[in-house]
Amino acid sequence: MGKYILDTCPVMLDTEYMSILSVQNLKVTFEDRVALDGVSFELEPGETLAIIGPNGSGKTVLLRALLRMVPYTGRIQWAGDVNLGYVPQKIDADRHLPVTFRNLLSAKAEVNSWSGEEISRAVRSVSLSDKILTTPVGHLSGGQFQRGLVALALLGNPSVLLLDEPTASVDVRGEEQIYELLHRLSEERRLTTILVSHDMSFVYQYADQVLCLNRERVCWGVPREVLTTETLNRLYNSPMRPYEHQHAEDH
């Protein structure tokens, strides 16, 4: 449960240098609207990939395709039986429900028949206090809530973490804490991290690769090499210099 046995050639799994994820010519269409077209990239184990792009550029759709939740053409190939953890951008339910992170963690553990020890390990790794665990989710601060979501994603010891704008509802200080936490986790556990972000300082500081998306691939590579002024202008269709795109979509 929660694991993806994927369509890889078994011989390739033995090679140390194989990508953990290979995406080839990915296309996602909703009725007549093309959400993603011709997107290709590869990711090595332990790497951090930042996905950037304007609203409606297909960032969340790409994550949903990687989770195999939307129909697509092209190829998405995960290595071996990777175990994915997911941090959503927002929750669908009303946040002011009588539900705590203890309830949510227990729910995920029950679905997968994991022990309470697994829950404790996930909770410890993001330093969630008992008080936070037993407080209704609606009463938590943005940062506490986000750390709870990360703990939920880490439950089950995933090899890949997918995060959809994990700092969208967090203040600047909480934002830094979340990014530091993610960086520490990825170092300690050699986690492969795929993260949709608007925060260019994070992209420069922590991302090994960046994918610029505007329905199709605008750029791909090491941030300091590919994030030129010209690329960013082309991506956002407006004049913008590197480092200046902080929460551009909020304004």
Partner: peptide
């Protein structure tokens, strides 16, 4: 509970 909280999270949780 997981399904109503986030279908993507539920899906990735099995």
């Amino acid at each position: 509970l997981l399904g109503l909280f986030s279908p993507e999270l539920a899906h990735s949780s099995g």
